[in-house]
């Protein structure tokens, strides 16, 4: 686990934290009034899934031939 992975992990965690908390949440909740009541849970789960995918891609071990 190199420094690059540590930086990427920190970045993912930071962005996810922003998306999970105020003020993002307040904005989403406000939008939900216009776009449909399911927006808040959809937002939370979508961010969650996106972050998982991002982290899965970013934490791949560099394969042969790729730059380390």
């Amino acid at each position: 686990m190199d420094e690059r992975l540590r930086h990427r992990a920190a970045a993912v965690a930071f962005l996810v934290t922003l998306a999970f908390l105020y003020p993002t949440l307040a904005v989403v909740d406000e939008l939900a009034r216009h776009l449909g009541p399911a927006l808040l849970p959809l937002h939370l789960f979508a961010v969650w899934l996106l972050a998982v995918v991002a982290m899965a891609l970013l934490s791949r071990r560099p394969g042969r031939g790729e730059e380390p």
Binding site: L5, A9, A13, V16, L44, W48, A51
Partner: peptide
Amino acid sequence: RGVAFLPIYLGPTVVAFLFPLLHL
């Protein structure tokens, strides 16, 4: 109370993303 149950899992989710730093 709807999504009130979620923070208990969102916290660990964030920590899990930090595994390569903290848990390392």
